[in-house]
């Protein structure tokens, strides 16, 4: 059976590049641009991995509120009723274009690094943009293999 991956990313160009790389090595790819769309996919079918952006555009502003952090929270806590039980152990890679330090905006505290939150919330791996698409593919494939091995 084909491996299946779900990607949540609101930048169309990056989403396309990543999707075609995964398709190139035989993945079926589901593409979503929002948390609610991603959750709908998860309720529909099983995936071998999830790649999620943290900040996504919502209502004209880029926020973390409706983005990857909440999605990860829902996936790892099926008891909340947003996503199915099987997804609890699905490998997750969180990606972001936000820098760890030198944060100047009010939405983040001086020590805020969204990737730390992502890891704390249950992401298996985190990556900071920009990166080569191939790096992402390698990380995802490794995660899927080690999670299969531990089953």
């Amino acid at each position: 059976m084909n491996r299946r991956i779900l990607i949540m990313e609101d930048d169309r160009d990056l989403l396309n590049q990543w999707a075609s790389s995964f398709e190139g090595i035989g993945f079926e790819v589901a593409m979503s641009a929002s948390r609610t769309e991603a959750e709908a996919f998860l309720n529909e079918t099983r995936f071998d991995a999830l790649v999620t952006d943290i900040f996504v555009e919502s209502g004209g502003a880029v926020t973390a509120g409706e983005g990857g952090l909440l999605l990860i929270g829902h996936v790892r806590n099926p008891g909340l009723g947003f996503t199915p039980e099987w997804a609890k152990t699905m490998p997750i890679v969180a990606v972001t274009a936000t820098q760890a330090s030198r944060v100047t905006q009010a939405q983040t505290s001086p020590t805020f690094d969204p990737l730390n939150f992502a890891s704390g919330g249950g992401a298996d791996s985190t990556m900071r943009k920009p990166f080569e698409t191939q790096e992402l593919v390698t990380v995802v494939v490794d995660l899927i293999e080690s999670s299969k091995a531990s089953e």
């Binding site: 930048d11 160009d13 990056l14 396309n16 590049q17 900040f55 880029v62 274009a97 936000t98 820098q99 944060v103 100047t104 905006q105 983040t108 943009k129 920009p130 990166f131």
Partner: peptide, 14 residues
């Protein structure tokens, strides 16, 4: 940081 966020995404555009 918003602009930097956009710049990092754009840097990866094809």
């Amino acid at each position: 940081s918003d602009l930097l966020h956009t710049i990092r995404n754009a840097s990866g555009h094809s």
